[in-house]
Design a binder for these strands. Structure first.
Lengths: 153, 153
DNA sequence: CACAATTAGTTGCGCACGCAACGATAAGAG
DNA sequence: CTCTTATCGTTGCGTGCGCAACTAATTGTG
């Protein structure tokens, strides 16, 4: 079982899995970003911070960085932008004063409540193009590669 | 059939397919980039230009941009870097003098011949963590989503 | 033919990113 | 307790990116 002809001399980028995977991720991200970019004015780092802070109230920038696998400076700047827009607020942690606990403001919670169903619906739409079997196979494959690369949380 | 609990209030980024897909693509890319970055001093745009020019001799920057889905300025700069390193060379097309045909130099072909087998072997290693069935399901799922998003070539 | 519209490729500019260094706080060693 | 070491988060700096504007060449239209 081979992915391409055995005697083929070169590499066809179009059929190369790492390249296809990157293209797919960008395509899916673009498909999704219409929602949080155009309708809510968030970029990718900001959307990820909103998503994380929305489900883990009082979490730290560090936790967001690990959870989203973004660089801490990227997280720091996204948080700063969201704070300027009064979507999140920060308070020094009593237990460890180096940390700053991140929480959604009232406006932030309102946006989160509006945003999440739209985003989940987009995911549902996207995955609806797969049969049940394909979906199962696809998720299983993803998990196996994640596990191989040590990517799961 | 549902991906997460129905009554769940928020979104868990860790189980969100667009996010997982992005993380997976980055992980696979990092896994692969060891080869072309450390051993050959290429970055991602340069590697993609090498891969495309290596399998389509005399192609144009435009073709590379479409084929790799990179912005034309990114392609232009990658080509400029590779030309400085004498890995590729350009010649104005006789048919259309706006175009510049891109070809690997002798050194470029040597690098390509050395690089491609290593990269394909990495891909093979990666996919070897999937069972035959998982691989089939994963590829089928990828194709279905590519098709849904209009991403195939 | 003349002239507008389009296309290939490059470049100036502003912006977001990651690295490294930093201040502040906390934890560990003697 | 003191001093070193590690951690949380921010910021200065250099770099790579995409947008828009540009040049040069080609194609389409009357």
């Amino acid at each position: 079982m081979s992915l391409r002809a055995p005697g083929e001399p070169g590499l066809e980028l179009a059929g190369f899995v790492p390249y296809r995977l990157n293209r797919l991720a960008v395509g899916v991200s673009d498909h999704l970003s219409d929602i949080y970019r155009e309708r809510f004015g968030l970029d990718i780092p900001e959307w990820r911070v909103m998503a994380t802070a929305g489900s883990r109230h009082g979490c730290t920038a560090q936790h967001i960085a690990q959870s989203t696998r973004m660089h801490k400076t990227r997280v720091s700047r996204a948080i700063a932008h969201l704070e300027e827009r009064d979507l999140i607020e920060r308070a020094s942690s009593a237990a460890d004063r180096r940390e700053r606990e991140v929480r959604l403001t009232k406006a932030g919670r309102r946006m989160y409540a509006e945003l999440v169903p739209l985003v989940l619906e987009r995911e549902r739409e996207l995955l609806a193009c797969l049969s049940k079997e394909q979906l199962r196979g696809f998720l299983a494959g993803m998990e196996a590669i994640e596990s191989f690369l040590g990517l799961q949380d």
